[in-house]
Simulated assay, not measured.
Amino acid sequence: MHIEPENDTQRLEFLLLGLAENPELQPLICGIFLSMYLVTVLGNLLIILATISDSQLHTPMYFFLSNLSFVDICFTSTTIPKMLVNIQTQSKTITYAGCITQMCFFLIFAGLDDFLLTVMAYDRFVAICHPLHYMVIMNQRLCGLLVLVSWVVSVLHALLQSLMILKLSFCTDLEIPHFFCELNQVVQRACSDTFLNEVVIYFVAVFLAGAPLAGILYSYHKIVSSIRAISSAQGKYKAFSTCGSHLSVVCLFYGTSIGVYLSSAVTQNSHSIATASVMYTVVTPMLNPFIYSLRNKDIKSALRRICGTGR
Rank of each mutant, 00 (worst) to 15 (best):
F63T: 12
G215R: 06
Y218T: 13
Y280I: 04
G18H: 02
P23Q: 08
Y218S: 13
A121G: 03
N184M: 10
I47E: 00
L148E: 06
F105Y: 13
F63N: 08
H133W: 11
I3P: 02
K167L: 13
N86S: 10
F195C: 11
F170G: 02
T118N: 09
G111E: 02
F203K: 10
T40V: 04
K82L: 13
I47W: 01
D54G: 06
L196I: 15
G43I: 04
S301I: 11
I80K: 01
L46C: 10
P177S: 08
I230G: 03
Y37V: 00
S263L: 14
V149L: 12
I94D: 00
V186Q: 03
K297A: 13
V282L: 12
D54E: 10
R189D: 01
F33M: 13
I87H: 01
T101M: 11
P131A: 05
K167E: 15
R305S: 10
F125Y: 15
W151C: 11
A97S: 15
I47Y: 00
K82G: 10
V260G: 00
K222G: 02
P81T: 04
C99S: 11
L57P: 03
V266L: 00
R189H: 05
G111S: 09
G259N: 02
Y96I: 07
N139C: 09
C30W: 14
Q88A: 15
L168S: 04
M279K: 04
C74W: 06
L84C: 07
L156I: 09
H130F: 13
F290S: 10
A205P: 02
V266P: 00
K297P: 04
F33G: 02
S277C: 09
